[in-house]
């Protein structure tokens, strides 16, 4: 069985982002970019399934400008067998990404498609669900545990939901999106980084895949959130209780 993993290049999670003065977006020039942390978890899970002998190949897919190849190389250095880059400049909203993924799934025929539950830039949390819907595959979103039964062709997924953990069982092929606690992604070692340089990356354009990138969304503006007013530092518990009672009036 083949596993396909979608990975996204985003502003590194440790970067303090700045909103552009003209309000068209956030500053991404000269800013450190990395693989979206949830995508790292998705890739790690695929690698572990392959290492346990339940899958034969892990294919990493990324979409976006030419630099997405750097993120794919990171994925290959972590252990993916090969990469696919769909070159697209300009905004790619989740619906377009889902349509491209559907085409790639039809070409590659994986038994499992694993994605991060959301990207930490747009925080959309949509692409996995949308791809599953377009493919008419079952979905296990926000996964904190994944158990594959190759014989029965079933995957059991523990999902992090609002009031606890929900367990679902899905027929393969299926889509899984990963939550934070699923695993701890590995670091790429230097020898593997060297090895990754010779792993193949196949290129497509949306046109070649017959996907029309149209958008039904328009960014009007991006602004900074309202700042909280500076607070006060108190010196004692008595003072705190007094403030909460008489100034804030919340207790």
């Amino acid at each position: 069985m083949k596993i396909m993993v979608a990975i996204k290049r985003v502003v590194d999670y440790a970067v303090k982002i700045r909103v552009k003065p003209d309000k068209t977006g956030v500053v991404t020039q000269n800013v450190k970019m990395s693989m979206n942390p949830f995508c790292e978890i998705a890739l790690e899970e695929a690698l572990r399934i392959r290492e346990s002998g339940l899958a034969s190949e892990v294919v990493a897919v990324s979409m976006g400008p030419a630099q997405s190849v750097d993120t794919l190389r990171t994925g290959l250095a972590m252990g993916a067998d090969r990469g696919i880059h769909v070159e697209a400049n300009g905004s790619l909203y989740p619906l377009s990404v889902a349509k491209i993924l559907k085409k790639l799934v039809e070409i590659e025929k994986p038994g499992l498609l694993i994605l991060g539950k959301q990207a930490i830039d747009d925080d959309c949390n949509q692409t996995g669900q949308m791809t599953a819907g377009l493919l008419n595959w079952p979905q296990g979103t926000f996964a904190s545990k994944v158990v594959l039964d190759k014989e029965k062709q079933v995957v059991t997924v523990d999902r992090e939901v609002d009031d606890g953990i929900e367990t679902v069982s899905l027929n393969l092929p299926a889509v899984i999106t990963t939550d934070l606690r699923l695993n701890q992604p590995r670091y790429a070692t230097l020898p593997n980084i060297m090895k990754a340089k010779s792993k193949p990356i196949k290129k497509y354009t949306p046109e070649e895949l017959n996907v029309e990138i149209k958008s039904d969304l328009e960014i009007v503006q991006v602004t900074e959130p309202p700042k909280r007013k500076a607070g006060v530092v108190l010196s004692s518990v008595d003072e705190l209780i007094d403030k909460l009672k008489h100034e804030a009036r919340v207790i």
């Binding site: 502003v11 982002i17 956030v26 830039d121 747009d122 958008s215 039904d216 969304l217 328009e218």
Partner: peptide, 14 residues
């Protein structure tokens, strides 16, 4: 909110 609430995005559905 985008970027963990560090920016707010106004978006229009067309």
């Amino acid at each position: 909110p985008i970027y963990a609430g560090n920016a707010l995005c106004t978006v229009r559905y067309t």
